[in-house]
Amino acid sequence: MKILVYSVLLLGLSMSSCSSDEKNTTLNQTPIQVTVNQSGNNSEGAYASASGKLVAKNSVNVSTRMMGYITGMKAEVGQNVRAGQLLVSINSTDIQAKGGQANAQISQAQASYNIAKKDYDRFSNLFKNQSASQKELDDMRARYEMAQAGLQAAQAMKSEVNSQYRYTNITAPISGVITEKYAEQGDMASPGMPLLTIESPSALQAQVLVSEQNITLIKQGMPVKITLKSNNEEVAGTVGEISRSSANTGGQYMVKVNVSNSANLLSGMFVNVQFPFKNTGKTNQDFQEGVMIPKSALVEKGQLTGVYTISSNNTAILRWVKTGKSFGDQVEILSGLNAKEPYIVSAQGKLFNGAKVTK
């Protein structure tokens, strides 16, 4: 019985000693030097974000009004073209036949007009000399005017044929790059069928859809941040066009943002656009308070993501957060961190829950 009591006493002393050693370790820990984002600096005010893609501001589909076989296709995808450059030729046999008919009709109408004009001039002189009656002069005038109208009709038909000729030799309406090709040489072209798409890469726009809660806060000319999803590169932009109807866009509103520098960008790239709003300090449910922190401040543990905050006792506390979209080297925090709450950006040592820290 005495041996059992002694064992219990020894075990208690041992646990007390271990607990005392852990407390001493925590108490004797050297504070870790950390860099803290001060309260209020982690929020850039309120914002809304939307996803979309880059499109060419100047983009045209090239088509024809003629039906016929494509006899020449001098265009390839990726080719740079200039305005007025010949791209597509279409078989013009039918138009040539109509042109011949129009020329024959003009010759016939011209001959009738010449004879009628001479007869009218002659009868006008006879009428002045009282050698022809008023009825004879009126008949010659009517014949002359009919011949004149016939000549004008034949000339109009020739002009129509000439205008149709333009659709057999299709030229580039703008300077740019061919991005799509819908037909090949030998294919049958039909009126209105697109043959090519030409885009001007010098001017790109980001087209995004914005919810009805945020559309009223977006103004034309507003500066925005555009982030490429592929590499998180950030470029500047300004709001160019704002749609005021969502009838054809599924209840969301189309906003077009002009890209400031699109030299190294390509049409079709996916982007995130961040619209900043002035924070008036009033609670507004139409937008959310923007909490953006550097990606370097995040802590990954398995499938969980957290960030270290600082307690009132100057110790590190790991806070689990939910992240949203990325904007360059910044990431959106959807929940778990308030906009005015300080957090640790970097530390000169290994952080853990309860670790002493100093700013």
Rank of each mutant, 00 (worst) to 15 (best):
L228R: 14
Q205N: 12
K229A: 14
T283N: 08
V224C: 10
S190V: 15
E241K: 14
I293M: 12
A172P: 04
N261F: 11
G240Q: 14
G250F: 12
G176E: 00
T227M: 15
E184H: 13
D286T: 05
Q285F: 07
S200K: 09
L196V: 03
Y182E: 03
N272Y: 14
V210D: 00
G268A: 10
Q207D: 13
L265Q: 07
E233D: 15
G186N: 08
Q205T: 04
F270N: 13
G250T: 15
I174S: 00
E241T: 14
T238M: 10
M292P: 11
I174V: 07
S200G: 11
P223Y: 10
S245G: 12
N261R: 15
V255D: 00
A203R: 03
S262W: 05
Q185A: 15
I198V: 05
T280R: 02
T179F: 05
L266E: 07
A206K: 01
G192E: 10
T171K: 09
A203F: 07
V239P: 00
A236C: 12
V291M: 08
N272V: 10
S262L: 06
V235N: 09
A183G: 04
V235F: 15
K219G: 06
K181V: 10
V257F: 02
R244W: 04
E234G: 11
N284A: 14
M188V: 12
A189S: 13
S230I: 15
T171M: 08
S267F: 13
G290N: 04
G281N: 05
A172T: 01
F275A: 00
I226D: 00
L217W: 06
N214F: 03
I218E: 03
A297S: 15
A183F: 10
